[in-house]
């Protein structure tokens, strides 16, 4: 694993590059929209990486948490007149609560069984949102929500017609989320996650509470993912359960694989690379998923630790090659 200083530098470098992208693409709404989606998926994938890659919890509920957050924010702002800027935090809080509820039974489980429980949440969510319960709480049932208020901040209303302000709003949110994740990794939480991942029994003997830390990681990643879902809802302005299709799930997995599982900030790099490749392959039509799948297989074989793993190798290689004392 890279040292914390190098992770921080890499993160700073990534965000410095991303910050100037509107200078080149600001005039093209379509590309700005893709960049905004990259920022959203970078946070969601980073949260997934934190829980799966660092904490070693095979949670497959990340898309579900994202959808819960998006619907919560949209419903809270529409039903109770709460401004979207606050509604997204309420959505994050509610999703964290759901995350804890999902996390509790998972604490008694290991590996694939956690994956099953969390994926069950994903599977259950669609019929709940479409059915009577969903309609009663205002999900719009099978129609979805087709009119969601845009984000307003200090009297300024963000609209998709001018994506640059929206880009920087999402940029700030993504930077804040990545800093939180970085701080967690650097703190004793991060050490505890790694200890629990390597050997839960040994870590417990050292006084690391698996219960406490696993629940905390569920709460934190659910909060950030749910909040990002809220931002997504107010950005796109409409929601449907089609987000629970296999496409997004697979995209996020590919992001993790390309970035490197447990290789923060790999998920951020992975998000930008995956979305860019996906869009570049669009002209291939039905051959896009085949090509994308083949690329992923090749990447997994060539770069099992993702892009960040490659950087690690390059850095360690250059360090070995450099003369002593340098």
């Amino acid at each position: 694993m890279m040292d914390h200083k190098r992770i921080t530098m890499m993160l700073a470098g990534i965000w410095a590059i991303v910050a100037v992208l509107p200078l080149f693409f600001g005039g093209t709404d379509f590309i700005m929209h893709i960049l905004i989606m990259c920022l959203i998926w970078s946070v969601v994938a980073s949260c997934w990486d934190l829980i799966m890659g660092f904490a070693g919890i095979f949670s497959f509920g990340q898309v579900a948490f994202f959808v819960i957050g998006s619907y919560t924010s949209a419903i809270v702002s529409a039903r109770f007149g709460i401004p979207p800027v606050f509604a997204v935090f309420i959505a994050g809080g509610f999703t964290a609560l759901v995350g804890i509820l999902v996390g509790l039974p998972c604490l008694k489980l290991k590996g694939a069984y956690i994956a099953l429980v969390t994926f069950a949440v994903h599977m259950i969510l669609e019929p709940v949102l479409k059915g009577d319960i969903g309609q009663a709480i205002g999900t719009g049932g099978t129609r979805g929500l087709l009119s969601i208020d845009p984000m307003t901040l200090f009297g300024y209303t963000f609209t998709t017609a001018s994506p640059i302000p929206y880009f920087y709003l999402f940029f700030l949110v993504a930077v804040a989320c990545s800093v939180i994740i970085l701080l967690v990794i650097r703190s004793h939480w991060g050490t505890a996650f790694l200890a629990l991942k390597d050997s839960q029994e040994f870590a417990t003997c050292l006084g690391v509470s698996a219960f406490k830390y696993k629940l905390m990681v569920f709460a934190l990643t659910s909060f950030l993912t749910g909040m990002m879902g809220g931002f997504y809802a107010h950005y796109v302005g409409m929601l449907s359960t089609r987000m629970l299709g296999i496409d997004l799930f697979v995209t996020l997995m590919v992001i993790l694989v390309i970035g490197g599982v447990g290789k923060f900030p790999g998920a951020i790099i992975g998000a930008f690379i995956t979305i860019a490749i996906n869009e570049l392959l669009s002209p291939l039509g039905p051959y896009r998923p085949i090509t994308m799948g083949a690329l992923v297989v090749i990447l997994v074989l060539v770069l099992p630790d993702g892009i960040v793993g490659l950087f690690e190798k390059l850095f360690s290689g250059s360090r070995r090659l450099s003369p002593k004392g340098h």
């Binding site: 379509f30 929209h33 893709i34 989606m37 979805g144 998709t160 997504y232 796109v236 302005g237 409409m238 929601l239 449907s240 089609r242 987000m243 299709g245 296999i246 496409d247 997004l248």
Partner: peptide
């Protein structure tokens, strides 16, 4: 349009 996810329709 893939599976008609909201952001895909908008995109």
């Amino acid at each position: 349009t893939q599976e008609f996810a909201p952001e895909r329709v908008m995109q």
